[in-house]
């Protein structure tokens, strides 16, 4: 049901030429995804998606729209080539899912490798009842360190791209 809504919203985003409406629909899409994550037992992921995906992404995109304008021109040429590429790729992916373990199957390979150890031992080893937190901060702490490095790099990149612009403008205006 929720998945159906997600498809409807995504198709609406494709059709819309008004970028403002498209960006707002992306926010709604993220909130729907967060609801879906709750129904799939991933509460931590749900509130991160609601705060970061629906909140910060939407604000960033709206800020960009304020700088670059909000109307999309009509794409030139016919859409059959992109459509063919998409359909062929989609068909290949559907073929690949036929071998996937069924939804909710407790014996799927993903549940039998390292996850049982986290589920059984992490409450005793770390003293944190929430297993997602203990895996994130303790067992896979280096992943989280890498994540913060990525954010730092992105932050530096954004500052260099947009901060340098103001200096250029100042130099342009200087001689006048």
């Amino acid at each position: 049901m929720l998945l159906g809504f997600l498809v409807v919203i995504a198709l609406a985003v494709v059709r819309l030429r008004n970028l403002f409406a498209a960006v707002m629909l992306t926010g709604i899409y993220s909130l729907h995804a967060a609801l879906l994550f709750i129904s799939l037992d991933a509460v931590d992921v749900a509130f991160t998606e609601a705060a970061v995906g629906a909140g910060i992404s939407t604000v960033l995109m709206l800020a960009t729209l304020g700088l670059v304008g909000r109307e999309e021109s009509r794409p030139r040429g016919r859409g059959w080539l992109p459509l063919t590429v998409v359909l062929v790729t989609g068909g290949a992916l559907v073929f690949a899912t036929l071998d996937m373990p069924r939804f909710g199957d407790p014996n799927a390979p993903v549940h039998t490798h390292v996850a049982p150890r986290y589920i059984q031992d992490s409450p005793n080893e770390t003293g944190v009842p929430n297993m997602v937190t203990s895996v994130l901060a303790s067992y896979r702490g280096y992943d989280t360190l890498g994540e913060t490095v990525v954010i730092l790099t992105a932050g530096i990149g954004v500052l260099l791209l947009l901060g340098g612009r103001r200096r250029d403008n100042d130099e342009d205006e200087g001689p006048r």
Binding site: A42, D44, V45, T48, E49, V52, G53, I56, S57, L60, M61, V110, H111, V114, A115, Y118, I119, M131, V132, V135, L136, R140, D143, T144, E147, V150, I151, T153, A154, G155, G157, V158, L161
Partner: peptide, 21 residues
């Protein structure tokens, strides 16, 4: 399974960083 949840938590935050860039 908590492991996919952890991976996706990381991916969401990294996704916002790439969007911003």
């Amino acid at each position: 399974n908590p492991l996919p949840h952890v991976l996706i938590l990381t991916a969401i935050v990294v996704g916002v960083a790439t969007t911003a860039l």
